[in-house]
């Protein structure tokens, strides 16, 4: 049993090497940077509406996932299915 608890330690070396590589690579090349227009533009928004219509549709029992599957709350730039209306 104690093998199981200790084996993940073996991943420390490769994970540390890869992590340092990527971190330094980004520090030099800045490939992950872009204009953060979401927070650097003057935006005036009216209060967000719709929370009163939230309704419970299901229950999950005994999942081992700590977050919802496909969580994209903070991935603002990941587009999801676009509904187009003709009357806009």
């Amino acid at each position: 049993m104690s093998d199981d608890g200790g084996l993940w330690l073996l991943a420390l070396g490769p994970a540390g090497a890869a992590g340092l590589y990527w971190a330094l690579y980004r520090h030099y090349r800045n490939t992950d940077k872009s204009h953060a227009f979401e927070r650097e533009t003057r935006i005036e928004a009216k209060p967000v509406t719709g929370s009163e219509r939230d309704r419970k549709v299901d229950e999950i029992k005994g999942t081992r996932q700590s977050r919802i599957r496909g969580d994209n709350l903070r991935a603002y730039r990941t587009r999801v299915q676009r509904i187009r209306s003709d009357s806009s």
């Binding site: 509406t49 719709g50 939230d54 419970k56 549709v57 999950i60 029992k61 005994g62 996932q65």
Partner: peptide
Amino acid sequence: YYDADVYRVERHV
């Protein structure tokens, strides 16, 4: 393990 309630969420801004 986790138990959770699932909600349908809609927002307008």
